[in-house]
Design a protein around this nucleic acid. Sequence first.
DNA 1: ACATAACATGTTGACGTCAACATGCACCAG
DNA 2: CTGGTGCATGTTGACGTCAACATGTTATGT
Lengths: 349, 349
Amino acid sequence: MSDTPTKPRGRPARGPSMGDVAAHAGVSSQTVSRVSNGLNNVEDATRQRVLASMQVLGYRPNQAARALRSGRFRSIGVVMFTLSSFGNMRTLDAIAISAAQSGYSITIVPVEHPTQKDVSIAFTRLLEQAVDGIVIVIEAHIIDEADVELPPGLPVVVIDSAARTDYPVVDTDQALGARQATQYLLELGHPTVWHLAGPESSYSAERREEAWRATLEAGSRPVPPVFRGDWSAVSGYEAGLLIAQQMEVSAIFTANDQMALGVLRALHERGRHIPSSISVVGFDDMAESDSFWPPLTTVHQDFGAVGRQAIKILLAEIEHGPSHPTTLVIPTRLVVRESTGLFTPVQAT
Amino acid sequence: MSDTPTKPRGRPARGPSMGDVAAHAGVSSQTVSRVSNGLNNVEDATRQRVLASMQVLGYRPNQAARALRSGRFRSIGVVMFTLSSFGNMRTLDAIAISAAQSGYSITIVPVEHPTQKDVSIAFTRLLEQAVDGIVIVIEAHIIDEADVELPPGLPVVVIDSAARTDYPVVDTDQALGARQATQYLLELGHPTVWHLAGPESSYSAERREEAWRATLEAGSRPVPPVFRGDWSAVSGYEAGLLIAQQMEVSAIFTANDQMALGVLRALHERGRHIPSSISVVGFDDMAESDSFWPPLTTVHQDFGAVGRQAIKILLAEIEHGPSHPTTLVIPTRLVVRESTGLFTPVQAT
DNA sequence: ACATAACATGTTGACGTCAACATGCACCAG
DNA sequence: CTGGTGCATGTTGACGTCAACATGTTATGT
């Protein structure tokens, strides 16, 4: 049957190389290289001829050879646990666009489960990858636990985690955001502010909670016990059911917008009016927050700036050698919408 | 000042190569290669010695050289317009995980603006990239307009667009989903179903609209004029304000969940009760939909399956040569929650 | 007219890996 | 004891590109 003389299963049809273009144009491959790299010491007629040959043959430079020669891949690895969160997605988008603008491509290494094992696998995979630097977007404690040694000399920037001080870190100013939210609610006259925190395993959640507590204490307000969710809207709903039945809760600061959405639902279901009976503030300012009912007052995080700054620092390190590990903090902004209002004392029954 | 004899600005500190490991272990580099690739024709003592040397020197294989030699990059390019949408993000996540499981990495090429120019730039960039295949996740009409010739022989799979029949396509069954939504509302007794469509530039929006219309016609129902949004929650809110004042609208099928969120807000504001006065169905089943108020009845899209299938087809093509361009359609599933209810005739005033 | 500069173009080799082939040794059948 | 077989290991060269150096050609100054 398969007696065809030529093996059709040959290697995957390598494209033409510089040599082929050179032969076609009647020049040396070095001249092709010069044209390909846009050097100007090529006669114009020759250049045109080479470009034409490239066109005809469909030449495209082989990045592997280029990388092998130069020792540079012009590629950045991104390790990220779950792309499926609003913040990560935005950050990744900004990273990709920034990197592209500097001529770098992005290789993403997904971490399927946030376990030490999976993180280790991801790092191992990444180390074998052809990248010039790495951006890590995972909660620090997972990294800390992962027993993987990142090779010295490979530039690394960490996002969203302040633990590893041996690498530059870029992060949103979690404390500022939490303070803005809490302070604003106090200014509206609320005696104190309750808090629906994120999971204990999260540093971001921890820092938001700390700043909330510190703000209350600075204002000599009582610090009520925290409610706790897992970032999901459903967990917010569950906490919301508890919150709804405590009539003394007049203001709640929720550690992210998704949980706030769940809280809103619970409050609606239990007939507590927002904001006249209870004010709600979120964190993130996701795209949909202005269309919640009511539109959510929330802390805006500039994920784009975080991604851009991370790339900026990383590229500087790649191209100009290591610098001092710094921590860059991106400020937040309170966006006031309709889920917050002046404190109204509970009617005595 | 800088009279240090050794140039510290040498090339970016190339790591040790096989040769270095070989010298350290006292074997030939070919033996190191064999150990590195896990071949079994190496004596155990030798293998241990080589592994130890690798460990000591911190050796990691150079992917560029490997790729140059083999002609394979073990990398897949993904062209995507805006990562910042629920569906794209989910799809990308699935793509990344599937590819990683097969030992491929993902290079993402962002398209900053959905213009022909930006798409062309993205393709050009991708063509220079070291990838074995491409997944395109952009609305087809933009691709069609982009005057870029993808090189023949480079495997391509298209997601979310049925126009290019010269490449395999994987997509959600938009028509099925729209039919499920519309049919369900009719079964609840609604005389007909209104539709808030996505932008005209979107094929997905177009197909959802067509199927909605066809379903109404099949049931001999009047086809009301469509409302139109741009996928955003805000556009849904604006349409929702119009919808709210038309009391004859008892059921609306919204082309995605985000617009549905905006519609819900508008209806709440205008005092129309959901679902007793008006039923709402969305499309996508985003993570938060079950925490909308009320929880949204919606069409579940299996983005994960789409991403996985796309990678499966692409890898088959990369590894076993081209196959027939097929269109693979992933079914949807109606998720009934609380935003829909039996038709209640409007009270005569 | 001749040395010299300025520039276009060609030649060579190395980057790190691995397939193909070559070598060398141990063991076994006859 | 010989020829062969099987296995571990070594040697060579090629993948495509580009820096460094080499060569050739033309213009410039004296």
